[in-house]
Amino acid sequence: MKFIHAADLHLDTPFSSISKFSKQLQENLKQSTYTVAKKVFKTAIDQQVDFIILAGDTFDDTDRSLEAQMFLRDEFEQLNNFGIKVYLIYGNHDYFRDNFSVINFPNNVTVFGKDVSTAELIADGLHVGITGFSYYQQHVNQNVVATYPSHGNFDYQIGILHAGVMDNNYSPFKISDLLSKGYDYWALGHIHKREILHEYPYIIYSGNTQGRNQNETGIKGFYLLEVKNKVTTAKFIPSSVYTWQNKSLNASEDETIDSLILKIKNLLLDKNNLVTIDINNAQKYAADVVKTIDRGELLTQFKDSPAILYKINLKYGRKSNLSEIDQKYWNESKEKTFDLNEIKDLDSRLYGNEVLRKHINQPEFLSHMEELVQNTINKKYNGE
């Protein structure tokens, strides 16, 4: 038996901060989620899999476009021609609503509803059970895994879940919760980073199929699973059209724009990479070099490079250490300022926004904010 586990296709991702790119590149980026989805479905046909699991957030928004719906319908009909079934749940981005779709999927597609249920099929002689549920709102605070049935009278049972480990906004669970069900495989979605949480049985986050911003670095893809004699093997299949990368340079006092351009060119050698460059110790640069970078003028100088320069971040250190009393005041103010609860209370309307709330709740949010503030202070301090 063979099947594919993919998640977080996010069809119709708008891609932000790309207005300085060429119109063609902007269009290619916006189409990239469709391109990688086609690769998922083509791989299914080429590998003659029995079925595909899509573990949530297939669409980027619950108000999905007609283009995205018709695209999926056509792809699913092609899969149907090859006898390949599709098992799909909706996540927090494309959560389930009554009458939310204007296009009906073909009969080889099973869409799980808001209540946990189990679909059955025969694949390569195995009686297979697939259990899952779709989100019915943006946040699901309860541990829905608790309502999943234990392993039934199946040769092989799969659980589909769009959730975060102990993430109270997204069907929180512990790995032990999943193991207690006795399933043979867990197909997870939601986290845009592939990760194998457990082997024997496999509990796998496949990650998203295409990185969508500078924080989603590295090659993205999906998993091809094969079951022989009830032993499951997992193979990662890369699918990214564009790969986001972070690279760094160290500033030098004798740097000129010409020498900096040459250094950056040497970091842009890999085709179809979107590169963010951090320049450390930017306080060493002359004022005219800093001004040119701050105005964004360098971003347009690398149109012929294989990789694409997405952003340059100037990171400032101090020319001299803080005095003892300055360090004392910084430490005290840092503790009071970078309090997550205080930040959430600053403006309930901001925290009520789904995108901002998700960003604020990321584990690295506070440390990132602290770094940005320290960088701003360092820049001003160096200029005085």
Results as ranks from 00 to 15, higher is better:
M1P: 10
F15C: 12
K20D: 13
F21T: 10
L25N: 08
L29V: 06
T33G: 00
F41H: 05
D46K: 09
G56H: 00
D63R: 05
L66D: 14
D74V: 03
D74M: 11
E77R: 08
L88N: 05
T110N: 10
F112L: 06
G129K: 07
F133H: 08
Y136A: 12
V144P: 01
L161V: 04
P172G: 05
S176F: 04
L178P: 04
Y183F: 06
D184L: 01
H192K: 02
I196Q: 06
Y200P: 09
N208S: 04
N215H: 10
V227N: 11
K235Y: 07
I237R: 00
P238E: 09
V241D: 12
V241H: 11
W244C: 08
Q245G: 11
S248Y: 11
N250G: 10
T256M: 12
I257S: 05
S259H: 06
L260G: 05
I264L: 07
I264V: 10
L269S: 00
N272L: 13
L274E: 15
N281P: 02
N281S: 06
Y285T: 01
A287Q: 15
I293V: 14
L299R: 10
S305N: 07
P306A: 05
A307W: 12
I308F: 08
I312S: 02
G317H: 06
K319N: 11
D326L: 00
K328E: 07
S333I: 06
K334S: 10
K336Q: 10
T337V: 12
E342K: 14
L350T: 12
Y351K: 04
G352A: 09
E354P: 12
L356Y: 14
F365I: 05
L366T: 00
S367N: 15
G383K: 13
E384G: 01
